[in-house]
Write a protein that binds this DNA or RNA. Structure first.
Length: 933
RNA sequence: UGGCACGUAGCUCAGCGGGAGAGCGCCGCCUUGACACGGCGGAGGUCGGCGGUUCGAAACCGCCCGUGCCAACCA
C-alpha cells in the first residue's frame, strides 16, 4: 500500500494504474495483490534541462535486483487490457489499417509449443505495424467444428451419438473413468451430443486464451469469434446460398471416397497416401464358351464378387482375342464383359485386370465410361452386405455355389473377407475353367500406396452415396492466377499452392455425415411417395439464417409436413469444417452484414498459417474469395515452419513428444520463448532448445540491468557532441534503417538478430563501458561532455527498447515504464512510435566514421593486456604504451580520453608502428597496479 | 518417381559474388561501482562431393550424395 501511494504522488504511470492497483485479479493469490499489480515506479526526480526537454532519472537502488518475469507478465497483461493498448479503432480509414486473418486454432486439438511459435511470428509483425502508427485489426477465432471435437467428446465422456436416441434435457455427465470405459459407450441423442461438444470446446478455448495472454499476443480480445457461433454459422450458410445461386454447388449420387469408420465422405484435401503391406493374388478367370482362361493379379480378391468387367490394353497380344467376349469369375461364376482400355498397363501384374464396384477411382472411371453394372457389395460400415446371386442384379452361372461362397463373406470387414476369399480360391471347386484351384500359387507380398483419411485408421473405400460438391475443376486457371496475385513468405511456398491446384482431380465434397458443425441449410421437397426431390432443394432464405434444417421449417411449409409425403425433409449432413474456416477473412470483416466494415477489413493484409494446410485452409479461402467477390482474400501469406522436438522429429500427439507452452514459459519467461520464436525465420522448421530459451532470458536480464544503469545517471542531458557519442549514434541510426527495411520485408528474424547483436556488441559491451567514466565525471567544465554521454546513452536505450519491443514486450515495457513512459508521453511502449530518422535529427555525424571501431579496438587491446597479465579488468593500469600505425593513431585521438578512462589507465605513451595494419593496436610495456588488499 | 527446401565450427543457425561469422558448449582468467541470471581473453571450419561460369565462388549454373517436406504411385 505504501508503494502505491508513493507512486501516485510521483505520478509516472500511477494515475491510470491506481484503479488497477485496487483490483484484485481472480487469478492471483490473495495477499498483496495491489502491490503485485503495480508496474514498478521508483522514485523519480523530475528536472528540467535547459537544453533538452523533460528529463527524469531514477534511483537504481529502488529497482528490484532481478526481473521477476512471471509476476510482470500477469501485471502487464492486466494493464494492456485496461488501457486498451491493442484495441482496433473502427473509425480510422482503410489506408491506416493493418488487418490480420488470424488462424483459429482447433481448440480440441492439443495445444503445443508450435502454436505459440507461429502465433508469435504474427505478433512481431503486428506490433511493428502498430508502432508504425497503423490501426491494427488482430482478432482471435476458435475452431470448434468437426471431427476432433466429436472425437474428444466421445473419449472424454465415453459416449457415441445415436441420432435416433431421444433427447435427454437433464443429461449430466462426468468425465469417464477407467471403470466406465470398460463398458459400451453411452448412446446420446444428436442434440445432447452437440451440447456436450459446446461444453468441451468452451473449456478448451480457455486453455488457449490463457496461453495467448501469457505469450502477450497483442490480440484485440473484443474481436473474437468461434466457428460454431451464430455469426459464423450464418456466414457459412450464406456462403452456401451464394454459391448455390451462382451455380457453383451441386449434389450427386455417385461412388465417392468414403471412410468406413467415420462413415463419411471426404474431399481430396482430406486424403493422404500411406505405404501398406499388401499381396498380389494371381487368380484364374474363365472365358465364356470354352475352357480357356487367363490370370489376373489383384491385391483386392475380396472384391471378386463385385467384379463387373475385365480389361487389358488394346495392343496387348496376350488378350486381344478376348475383347468382346465375356469372362467368367471364379467362385461366383459371374459373366462379365472383357473390353480394351488404354488405361490398362501391360507391364503391371499380368496386364489384365478385373474392374469392380469399386476398388479405386479408375474402377469408377471404367464403370462410368463403359456403363458397367453396379454391384456395390461394401456397405457404409465397411462390411459386405447381403445379396442374392442368381437375381437380376447379381447374375451367376451357378447361383447355388455363388451363394454358398458368398454366404461365408457376408458381414465381414474387408480384411476378414480378403482372408476368407483367398482361402476359397485355393479350393479347386471354385474354378471357372476346371483347371484346378483358381488361386495360382501363394499370394506375393508387396508394399503399395493406399489412400487413407488423414485422421483414419482404415483404407478408404469407394461407396455410392449422395453428397454436395463445390465445382472447382473448371476454375483451376483463375485459382492459379489468384495465387500469383498474393505474396507468399517465403516465396517458394507459392509452389505448394500451385502444385496442389494443378493436381486437383475432384470437385470439393463439402457434405459430411457428422453432427457437430454447421448444418447444410437445405430441405428437400417430398413427392407423393415420400421420396426426396434432390434436383429441387429448398435453400434457406437469408432472413432465416442461421438454421438447422432438422428442426427449422422452410418457408411455405408447416412443422407437421416434416417427412410426410408432399411435405419436406431436412438435410441431415453438415459442412466440411473447411467450408466455414475458409471464410475467416469474411467472418472478421462482417461480410454482407456491415458493408463499411467489410470494405475496411477485406481483403486482409496478412494470413499467417503453416505449410501443411496450404492445400486446405489457404486454398479454400482463396476459392471462396474468388467465387464470392472475385477478389484475393489477403495480400500476403506468412508461412511458419513446424516446431520439432529436440531430436528434430515433428511434434505430434501421435508421437507423444508434444511440449506444452506454459511449463516452458514458467521456466524461462514469455519473453524468452518469444525470443526463441523470433530468431527463427518464416518457413523454417525449428527445434525446441533449452539453450535458446536461456539466451532469450539472458537478453531480457541484460536489458533490465542496462536500463537500470542508464536511467540512473543523474547528469543533465546536453546535445550529443562528443566524437564517440556521435559515432555511436550513427551506428544506431544505421541499425534503425536496416531493421525497418527488414521488418517491411517480413524478415523479423534479421531484425531481432541484428538488434540483439547491436545491443550487446555496440551498446552494453562497448559504448556503455567506454562512456561510463565520462557520464560520471565531476566538475562544472565537464558538464557538456557528461551531458552528451548521458543523452546518447538514453537515446541508445530508448531506441533499442523500441526495436526490441515487438519481440520482448514485457521487459521492454517494464524498463519503458520507469522513465520514458512519462518523458515521452506514451504510457505503453507498444503504442510508442517505431524509431526513425526523427530520433537522430540535429545530431551531427562523427568527424571520422571509424571513430567507434577504433575506440573499441584500442580498449580491447588494453583488456587483452590485462587478460594476458591475468589481472582483473577493474585493475588500474599505471602506465601503458599504445602502438598503432600513424593513421590509426590519428583516428584514436578524438576518442582517446574515453578509451583511457575505460581502461583505467593512469599514464600512457603513444608509439607509431608503421607495420601494424589499420585499426590494429598493440599494448607494449604494460604496468598494472598491485592487487588491492 | 516428380517438385520444393536444406546440407557452413562439437550443437543450433546467420551470411548467399570479393575479409569464413554469431550464440551455446569448450579452455584460461577476473568478484568490476547496471548486471556472477555477470565480465575479459582464447582455441575450433579445406562452407556435403565433383565439374563449370568468373579476374575472383560458401554464395551463381550443372550433375551426384545425404536429410526433410509436399505430391504421385491401390489392377
Amino acid at each position: 500500500m505504501q508503494r502505491a501511494s508513493r507512486a501516485a504522488s510521483i505520478g509516472i504511470v500511477a494515475p491510470t494504474l491506481c484503479e488497477t492497483a485496487t483490483v484484485s485479479p481472480p487469478d492471483l493469490p490473495p495477499g498483496e495483490p495491489s502491490l503485485m499489480l503495480l508496474p514498478f515506479a521508483g522514485p523519480v526526480e523530475s528536472r528540467m534541462s535547459s537544453k533538452i526537454a523533460p528529463f527524469q532519472t531514477m534511483d537504481a537502488s529502488s529497482v528490484p535486483k532481478h526481473f521477476e518475469a512471471a509476476e510482470a507478465e500477469l501485471r502487464w497483461d492486466r494493464c494492456w487490457e485496461e488501457w486498451g493498448t491493442y484495441r482496433y479503432d473502427p473509425s480510422r480509414p482503410r489506408a491506416e489499417t493493418f488487418v490480420v486473418d488470424t488462424p483459429p486454432p482447433t481448440v480440441s486439438g492439443s495445444l503445443h509449443i508450435g502454436h505459440a511459435f507461429s502465433f508469435t511470428h504474427t505478433d512481431f509483425l503486428v506490433r511493428f505495424h502498430r508502432m508504425r502508427g497503423m490501426n491494427v485489426f488482430y482478432p482471435m477465432g476458435w475452431d470448434d467444428n468437426g471431427v476432433p471435437t466429436e472425437r474428444r467428446v466421445q473419449n472424454y465422456f465415453h459416449v457415441r451419438c445415436d441420432p435416433a436416441a431421444p433427447h435427454d434435457p437433464n443429461l449430466q455427465l462426468e468425465p469417464a473413468n477407467a471403470k466406465l470405459r470398460k463398458r459400451r459407450p453411452r448412446e446420446v441423442s444428436r442434440q445432447n451430443f452437440i451440447e456436450l461438444c459446446h461444453l468441451i470446446t468452451q473449456e478448451d478455448e480457455k486453455a488457449f486464451h490463457e496461453v495467448w495472454r501469457r505469450m502477450a499476443l497483442s490480440v484485440d480480445w473484443t474481436q473474437t469469434y468461434a466457428t460454431i457461433d451464430d455469426h459464423c454459422r450464418m456466414l457459412a450458410q450464406w456462403s452456401f446460398r451464394d454459391l448455390f445461386e451462382k451455380g457453383h454447388v451441386y449434389n450427386v449420387d455417385a461412388p465417392f471416397m468414403w471412410d468406413v469408420d467415420f462413415q463419411m465422405a471426404l474431399a481430396q484435401a482430406d486424403i493422404e497416401d500411406r505405404q501398406q503391406a499388401g499381396a498380389y493374388c494371381d487368380i484364374e478367370f474363365g472365358v465364356e464358351g470354352g475352357n480357356e482362361g487367363f490370370v489376373i493379379a489383384t491385391t483386392r480378391p475380396e472384391l471378386l464378387p463385385a467384379c463387373v468387367g475385365v480389361t487389358a490394353h488394346p495392343e496387348d497380344e496376350r488378350y486381344r482375342n478376348f475383347f468382346g467376349k465375356k469372362a467368367i469369375t471364379p467362385l461366383f461364376r459371374v459373366p462379365v464383359p472383357i473390353f480394351p482400355s488404354e488405361l490398362a498397363d501391360p507391364e503391371k501384374g499380368t496386364g489384365i485386370l478385373m474392374v469392380c464396384t469399386f476398388g479405386d477411382s479408375t474402377d469408377v472411371d471404367w464403370w462410368r465410361q463403359h456403363q458397367l453394372e453396379s454391384r456395390q457389395l461394401l456397405g457404409r460400415n465397411g462390411r459386405l452386405i447381403e445379396v442374392e446371386f442368381g437375381s437380376e442384379a447379381f447374375p451367376s452361372l451357378d447361383p447355388d455355389a455363388a451363394n454358398r461362397f458368398y454366404g461365408e463373406l457376408v458381414g465381414k470387414r474387408v480384411a476378414q473377407a480378403r482372408a476368407a476369399v483367398t482361402e476359397q480360391l485355393a479350393d479347386p471347386s471354385g474354378s471357372a475353367t476346371g483347371n484346378g484351384a483358381p488361386l495360382q500359387g501363394a499370394p506375393r507380398p508387396i508394399e503399395h500406396a493406399v489412400k487413407f483419411y488423414e485422421k483414419g485408421d482404415n483404407p478408404l473405400e469407394f461407396v455410392q452415396t449422395r453428397q454436395w460438391f463445390v465445382r472447382l475443376l473448371d476454375k483451376k486457371r483463375e485459382l492459379l492466377e489468384q495465387g500469383e496475385r498474393i505474396e507468399w513468405h517465403p516465396d517458394f511456398m507459392k509452389v505448394r499452392y500451385r502444385d496442389w491446384t494443378e493436381g486437383l482431380q475432384l470437385d470439393w465434397c463439402i457434405s459430411r455425415q457428422r453432427y457437430f458443425g454447421v448444418p447444410i441449410p437445405v430441405w428437400y421437397p417430398l413427392d407423393d411417395a415420400g421420396e426426396r426431390d434432390y434436383a429441387n432443394p429448398i435453400v434457406a432464405d437469408r432472413e432465416q439464417l442461421p438454421i438447422d434444417p432438422m428442426s427449422d421449417v422452410p418457408t411455405g411449409y408447416t412443422p407437421e409436413q416434416r417427412d410426410q409425403p408432399g411435405g419436406f425433409s431436412g438435410e441431415r449432413d453438415i459442412f466440411d469444417t473447411w467450408f466455414t474456416s475458409s471464410l475467416t477473412p469474411e467472418i472478421g470483416s462482417h461480410w454482407t452484414l456491415d458493408d463499411d466494415r467489410h470494405a475496411k477489413l477485406f481483403p486482409a493484409d496478412v494470413r499467417p498459417q503453416s505449410h501443411e494446410i496450404i492445400r486446405t485452409w489457404a486454398f479454400y479461402t482463396i476459392l471462396k474469395a474468388l467465387l464470392h467477390e472475385n477478389e484475393i482474400p489477403w495480400r500476403h501469406v506468412l508461412i511458419s515452419g513446424w516446431v520439432l522436438d529436440p531430436d528434430r522429429k515433428k511434434m505430434s500427439k501421435s508421437l507423444g513428444n508434444v511440449q506444452t507452452p506454459l511449463p516452458i514459459i514458467e521456466r524461462h519467461s514469455a519473453d524468452a520463448v518469444r525470443y526463441w520464436a523470433g530468431i527463427a525465420r518464416l518457413g523454417v522448421d525449428t527445434a525446441t532448445d533449452e539453450k535458446v530459451f536461456k539466451v532469450g532470458k539472458r537478453l531480457s536480464t541484460k536489458i533490465f540491468n542496462a536500463g537500470k544503469f542508464v536511467l540512473s545517471q543523474t547528469a543533465e542531458v546536453h546535445p550529443i557532441t562528443a566524437e564517440l557519442d556521435r559515432a555511436f549514434v550513427q551506428k544506431l541510426s544505421d541499425l534503425v534503417e536496416r531493421s525497418t527495411r527488414d521488418f517491411e520485408a517480413f524478415q523479423h528474424a534479421s531484425v531481432l538478430k541484428e538488434t540483439e547483436s547491436f545491443f550487446w556488441t555496440h551498446f552494453t559491451d562497448t559504448y556503455l563501458e567506454l562512456v561510463k567514466a565520462r557520464a560520471r565525471a565531476e566538475g562544472e567544465d565537464e558538464a557538456a561532455a557528461r551531458g552528451s554521454a548521458v543523452a546518447a546513452l538514453r537515446l541508445g536505450l530508448d531506441v533499442l527498447l523500441r526495436l526490441l519491443a515487438p519481440f520482448l514486450p514485457y521487459i521492454t515495457e517494464e524498463v519503458w515504464s520507469w522513465v520514458f513512459a512519462q518523458e515521452k508521453g506514451e504510457r505503453s511502449i507498444h503504442r510508442a512510435p517505431w524509431p526513425s530518422g526523427e530520433n537522430f535529427r540535429g545530431i551531427d555525424p562523427p568527424a571520422n566514421s571509424g571513430s567507434f571501431d577504433v575506440a573499441v579496438a584500442c580498449w580491447t587491446a588494453i583488456n587483452k593486456s590485462k587478460a594476458d597479465a591475468e589481472v582483473s579488468m577493474g585493475r588500474d593500469a599505471l602506465n601503458l604504451t599504445i602502438a598503432a600505425n600513424p593513421q590509426t593513431l590519428s583516428l584514436l585521438d578524438p576518442v582517446l580520453a574515453d578509451v583511457l578512462a575505460a581502461g583505467r589507465c593512469r599514464a600512457h605513451q603513444l608509439a607509431e608502428s608503421a607495420d601494424l595494419d589499420d585499426g590494429v593496436f598493440e599494448i607494449l610495456d604494460a604496468e598494472f597496479a598491485p592487487k588491492p588488499e
